[in-house]
């Protein structure tokens, strides 16, 4: 490898994606038709909701390929940088690559410019990446991210959702995406209110995922046999923090016990 040095008019600036393009390492466009017999791995349900200190993000762990389970322990909620996170639903391979590129894009900008992007700037960067994936999305390889973070300038949590065309929408309170997104959204909607505390917010995210797994075959529920539980993370002014798996397991156990006591688990 040589030192990448560019003339002033040719410099890719703080953009890592442009840098890759300049070096001929950009993402190749998909031209094959994946409906022709290929089974693509898909990731499923993701949830984000705003609370008093910031946002909670959560996602189940299952990835499916057609009607079979491809992975039982895939992580769909990732830190994007210190104060934001990205969760993904859709074609798993592309989605994970998009997360990796997005993380690098933010870090690269921060290092080259000496300052982090604003939360809105990060959300827009992600929108451009989703839009670039549009040709693949048209062929059934859509990636739908959910972006959330703590806005250090406005001192609050913010959530952004996307559609396949790269449309970016700011949600005021909560959102869920993926195959079980509708069920999760309904569950969260029933109990969400302004200024939730940390514990209640995590509880609500866990409940949303539980209901999604209950209704949607592609969403994995808590797996007590293997000890695999959904990913839950909080993003506050102190940054992105994963909720320990043992705590998530306890919350699921409590939820199931409560439902059984109410005669709902029959």
């Amino acid at each position: 490898m040589s030192l990448p040095l560019f003339a002033p008019h040719d410099d890719p600036g703080p953009s890592f994606v442009h840098l890759l393009d300049k070096l001929g390492l950009g993402f190749p466009e998909v031209t094959a038709d994946p409906s022709a017999g290929l089974t693509i791995t898909h990731g499923t349900t993701i949830v984000a909701l705003r609370y008093a200190d910031g946002v909670v993000m959560a996602g189940d762990r299952r990835a499916t390929a057609g009607s079979s389970i491809a992975h039982r322990a895939m992580d769909k909620v990732h830190p994007a940088d210190r104060h934001s996170g990205v969760a993904i639903a859709g074609a798993a391979g592309f989605a994970l690559e998009m997360v990796k590129l997005f993380q690098l894009q933010l870090e690269h900008y921060e290092k080259v410019e000496g300052a982090a992007l604003s939360l809105e700037g990060k959300a827009n960067q992600l929108a451009q990446m989703v839009r670039q994936n549009l040709p693949s999305a048209m062929q059934g390889l859509a990636v739908i991210p959910l972006f959330a973070g703590y806005d250090l300038r406005r001192r609050q949590g913010r959530i952004y959702t996307y559609d396949v065309t790269g449309g970016r929408y700011e949600e005021s309170d909560f959102h869920a995406d993926g195959s079980g997104g509708r069920d999760a959204r309904t569950a969260v909607k029933m109990q969400w209110r302004e200024g939730l505390d940390h514990d209640t917010a995590i509880e609500l995210a866990v409940q949303g995922l539980y209901e999604a797994a209950d209704e949607d075959s592609a969403t994995g529920g808590p797996d007590a046999v293997r000890g695999i539980y959904p990913t839950v993370a909080t993003i506050t002014e102190h940054g992105f923090e994963r909720v320990p798996e043992i705590e998530v397991a306890e919350r699921f156990a409590a939820l199931i016990a409560r439902k059984t006591a109410q005669g709902l688990n029959r």
Binding site: M1, L3, P4, L5, P12, F16, L19, L20, L23, L25, K100, L101, L104, E107, H108, K111, V112
Partner: peptide, 17 residues
Amino acid sequence: DQLRVAGVQHADVKGYQ
């Protein structure tokens, strides 16, 4: 500073590849 930016670019690309 030009050398610094080139270093960041080199390192990030290498880590990505």
